[in-house]
């Protein structure tokens, strides 16, 4: 089978959220001599990216994403065994995320957490109403690559600015990427407070994050 066919089949297994098919394709593609890293990045991950796009358009729903993610994880587990030791069990990045103190809105943040996990990031979700110092402590503890904060209201949005300042004070700001989200956040707000980027939607967040981590 041609390389493109293998990649298409892998992506389709994820779109179908079919764990058994994903495992079968992973095994057979290895036997056929396919590069496992390529199968992960260009095949199965492409399927998950498409799922994320469909979620953004209201054509796929959160439980469907979770099931597709399970299928992807099962396939990746098989493919990883064929990778060199140093490439095994690599995470896309370590993320600490939460809704800032005083804000109890966590539905949007919960969606982002699911999407990031589905895409292979190691996510530490601090929940909602999170004191600023907790973001800093956790970021240190897990050696985070990314610190994300959510705020739903103009009254709580200032917490995102305080987080930037706290990360600077702790000497972490140059070591992490910061991302902000929430109903009232914008690109301009991110620039104004010194955050690295604003994630407008789950898909937008994933794209910007990937770009910056690369």
């Amino acid at each position: 089978m041609e390389k493109t066919k293998w990649l298409e089949k892998a992506a389709q297994a994820i779109l179908d959220a079919d764990e058994a098919a994903a495992q079968d394709i992973a095994e057979k593609s290895l036997a056929a001599g396919m590069d496992p890293l390529e199968m992960i990045n260009e095949g199965f991950a492409a399927g998950i990216r498409k799922m994320g796009d469909l979620f953004d358009r209201g054509e796929v729903f959160l439980p469907g994403l979770v099931v597709a993610s399970d299928a992807m994880m099962a396939a990746v587990k098989i493919l990883e065994q064929a990778l060199p030791k140093d490439k095994q069990d690599q995470k896309m990045g370590v993320i600490v995320i939460g809704t800032v103190e005083g804000d109890i809105h966590d539905i949007g943040k919960g969606i982002i957490v699911t999407m990031l996990s589905v895409h292979g990031y190691e996510v530490h979700d601090l929940g909602r109403d999170v004191p600023i110092e907790n973001f800093v402590t956790k970021a240190k503890e897990v050696n985070a690559d990314v610190v994300g904060s959510s705020a739903m209201m103009t009254t709580t949005q200032l917490g995102q600015k305080k987080l930037e300042e706290a990360l600077k004070a702790a000497g972490l700001r140059n070591k992490v990427i910061t991302m902000v989200g929430g109903a009232v956040a914008t690109d301009h707000w991110a620039k104004r407070i010194g955050a690295d980027f604003y994630g407008e939607s789950p898909q937008d967040t994933l794209e910007k994050l990937k770009e910056r981590l690369n």
Binding site: F55, R57, G58, V60, F61, L62, P63, G64, I107, I111
Partner: peptide
């Protein structure tokens, strides 16, 4: 659009 957090 209606977010499908339950989905069904």
């Amino acid at each position: 659009f209606v977010l499908g957090l339950h989905g069904e």
